[in-house]
Amino acid sequence: MLNFKSVEDGARLPHNTLATPRISELIGAIDAERLALADAQGVPAVSFPDFLTRSYGVTEGTLSERIQSSYGPLDFPEPDSPSHRYFTEDIPFSMVIWSSLAARIGCPMPLTDAVIDISAVLCGRDWQACARTAGSLGLGGADAAGIVAAFTTKRHHQPSMRQRPSSPGPAATSRGVRPVPMGGGTPTPGVAADQWRGVRLVRRVQRFREPR
């Protein structure tokens, strides 16, 4: 976002070369807000420097130097338009979710909120209108413990599509057996149905997006 002119120009500059020392300071500060949100909810989270170590084996240097060492050999190009997925996916389906959950539990994320607002103007998008939020996931009334429980409750095993019966059948219903619904999972006690559907959707997105 801080190199938006070259994005509009479609310059496709190497991604790592744009992480200057000062821009890297901002990256680190935004990452600190994400880690603070995780800490406020009592869940572990991997910092960006630790991610670079785990993924690329880079252990030394400033954050800017680590980014150069990690991504340099890969020669990733920067986004080449305001409609690139780095904007249209990462902001509404990552940063807006963080901000929305943080607002629920009173955890300030001023830099994250600023990136959301400024990028909305630059990209000509209303991220809030298309994003997933605590409210759209049915977590609008949840506290920190409720949010964590919704995302961490263990799900029961689902049969594969080949194993899943198309209908319960007389024998199955006589034994009280019910077919597993599409999407699977067992709702957490006390969690509303619309909340559970939202949580299942996020889990599917997470499985699709990891590893990136």
Rank of each mutant, 00 (worst) to 15 (best):
E65P: 00
S70N: 12
V180A: 14
P44K: 02
S136D: 00
Q128S: 11
V180K: 14
P189N: 09
S81Y: 14
L37C: 04
T112W: 04
T188D: 06
E78G: 05
D31I: 03
A149H: 02
R162L: 03
A36P: 08
E78D: 14
M95K: 09
G72W: 03
D75R: 02
R104K: 13
S119G: 03
V148W: 14
F48R: 02
R22C: 04
F48L: 15
A131C: 01
P49I: 10
S119E: 07
R203M: 04
F76Q: 14
E210M: 09
Q128R: 13
P159I: 05
T88C: 12
R22G: 00
K154Q: 10
E33C: 02
K5Q: 10
R203C: 03
V7Y: 14
V148F: 15
P110W: 10
I30A: 14
L18D: 09
L111M: 05
A120Q: 06
S174N: 11
P110R: 02
D113T: 06
S174C: 10
T188H: 04
A29S: 07
G140C: 00
M109L: 05
G169K: 07
P77G: 10
L137P: 01
V205Q: 10
G176V: 09
G176E: 06
T20E: 04
L101D: 00
P168D: 11
A142T: 07
R155Q: 14
D80W: 15
F93Y: 15
R132Q: 07
A38Q: 03
A29T: 01
E60L: 02
N3Q: 00
P14Q: 14
M109R: 01
P82I: 03
R209F: 08
G146S: 09
Q163K: 01
C123M: 08
E8Y: 02
H156E: 15
V177S: 10
S99P: 05
A103M: 12
A11Y: 09
R22F: 13
A134D: 10
L122P: 04
A36M: 03
F93A: 03
P168L: 05
T53V: 00
L35M: 15
R162G: 00
D143H: 05
G184K: 01
S100W: 11
V177C: 02
M182C: 07
E65N: 02
S81K: 14
G146R: 06
P110V: 08
S55C: 01
D126E: 08
V199F: 02
L63W: 02
S160D: 04
R164D: 03
R155G: 12
Q158P: 00
G184N: 04
I91L: 15
A32F: 12
P49T: 11
D143L: 04
F151M: 13
V191A: 06
P108R: 09
T59L: 09
E89W: 15
N3R: 13
S174Q: 13
T133P: 09
C130A: 15
A102Y: 13
A103W: 08
T133H: 10
Y86E: 15
D31L: 04
G183E: 04
P181D: 08
E25N: 13
P170E: 12
D113I: 04
T17K: 12
E89Y: 15
G28A: 07
E25R: 11
I97A: 05
R85M: 12
G124V: 10
V199T: 08
P211K: 07
S70P: 01
A129G: 11
L139Y: 00
W196G: 05
K5D: 00
V199H: 06
F48D: 11
P21K: 09
E8F: 01
T152G: 05
R22W: 09
V121S: 12
D90G: 05
